[in-house]
Nucleic acid binder design. Structure first.
Length: 373
RNA sequence: GCCGGGGUAGCUCAAUUGGUUAGAGCACUUGACUGUGGAUCAAGGGGUUAUGGGUUCGAGUCCCGUCCCCGGUG
């Protein structure tokens, strides 16, 4: 993997870049839709391409439990198995163990957990997680981390962050294929500045090809989140890609790019779409609301995605209210298209030295939820 | 026609010998969702208990009339 910075924004820390992987180029800043089980729910790879998707995220935790890394390996790797020829990033499973499994027990050696769907017992170590991700053969793979909940006590966060660093060292050591796969380290530290700083320095010393910031957007105030992102980014090597994990809302993406983030992933555009809430240039729109029953305009009057070119709000509402399978599909297509459109606008604005203007224009039009600030 | 059973929220049903403001599920309305949850959670609206009388301190509940539904029988 190679990362080159193309352009720095004049007024902010935003930048555009080019990430070259063994399955092609990713232009940054970029948003990665989440395809947990080897599919971005409801949409096909071809449709993802049409939405402007360049890289998707898949999940070690889920794919390990089903169908198992051996099967995917014998299919010729994840790209072959799911028929996606562009880059893939796999998450390590640290977050899923934290958020999905009932019984988890963390020790120095690793984490034991019970599967969230059949209750079976499993044990992840840093070495195991690398082995699985090498079998899946994603272009970018992640270190095993522990994601401490918010809020966490300082003492818990300190120990947890220390453990994440030790696991990062073991992951790096366990990696056998660093020619075609890039291993990103994950920075933790909860909401404590000194722990974030320490975590950043320790991981930078290990010289990863890219760095992720994890453990944020877990309910902490936005002010704190941005302070921490800013602090971490300032202490990361500028020439390496930076990935803010699990973020976020459109307004968050703008803020994070401003601080110098290159990569994002989030379930919001896809999960919310399945539940009937889509993102548009004018803000969030709950298509199931009765107010759209007779509204024959598209979701977003300025969008040229397949959904907006062909279907009305009234029809989409009808599809949702009748439980039709097309409803989550069309909504997902729109929101994914919108997120990728936004990233493209951001890249273009940076390259033309007008990122600041774009940011202001976008936020003046986009009606965001004030609870999120 | 006669005999029996039954009419409670849009739907399916609760409501202990008559006893606070008639409840629930689904549906509906409105929120929430940040390294996935087609999941789920939260809040809300909705009732002259078929209808007209009566008994009672008090009736969805007991009595009488009327209307309607279901089963049986002519």
């Amino acid at each position: 993997m190679r990362f080159e910075i193309i352009k720095h924004d004049k007024n902010t820390s935003a930048r555009t870049g080019r990430l070259t992987t063994s399955h092609g180029i990713v232009e940054t800043p970029i948003f990665m839709p989440v395809g947990t089980q080897g599919t971005v729910k409801t949409v096909s790879p071809k449709e993802l391409e049409e939405c402007g998707v360049q890289i998707v995220l898949a999940n070690t935790y889920h794919l390990y439990l089903r169908p198992g890394p051996e099967l995917i390996k014998s299919a010729g790797g994840l790209h072959n198995f799911i028929s996606w020829s562009h880059p893939i990033l796999t998450d390590s499973g640290g977050y899923q163990v934290f958020s999905l499994s009932d019984l988890r027990q963390i020790s120095e050696e690793g984490v034991s957990f019970r599967s969230h769907f059949d209750g079976s017992s499993h044990f992840f170590t840093p070495e195991k997680v690398i082995e699985i991700q090498e079998a899946l053969w994603a272009d970018i793979i992640m270190t095993l981390d522990e994601c401490p909940p918010y809020p966490s006590s300082y003492e818990y966060a300190r120990k947890s962050t220390e453990l994440t660093t030790k696991w990062a060292i073991r992951c790096k050591k366990a990696q056998t294929n660093n020619e075609t796969q890039a291993l990103f380290g994950i920075i933790q530290g909860s909401t404590y500045s000194d722990l974030r700083l320490l975590s950043t320095k320790n991981l930078v010393d290990l010289d990863f090809p890219g760095y992720a910031i994890g453990g944020l957007a877990l309910g902490e105030p936005k002010v704190i989140m941005w302070e921490l992102v800013s602090l971490v980014v300032q202490n990361l090597p500028p020439e390496k890609p930076r990935y803010l994990m699990g973020v976020g809302y459109p307004e968050d993406l703008i803020s994070a790019v401003t601080l110098g983030i290159d990569l994002f992933d989030c379930v919001l555009p896809t999960r919310n779409a399945r539940n009937g809430t889509v993102f548009t240039r004018f803000g969030r729109l709950s298509i199931k609301n009765a107010t759209y029953a007779n509204d024959f305009s598209p979701l977003d009057s300025e969008c040229n995605c397949y959904t907006c070119r062909n279907f009305s709000r009234a029809y989409l509402r009808h599809l949702f209210n009748t439980g039709e399978i097309l409803a989550p599909r069309l909504a997902t297509l729109h929101s994914v298209h919108f997120f990728l459109w936004l990233m493209k606008e951001i890249r273009q604005a940076i390259s033309e030295d007008r990122f600041d203007t774009l940011r202001k224009e976008f936020l003046s039009k986009y009606h965001y939820n004030e609870n999120h600030l």
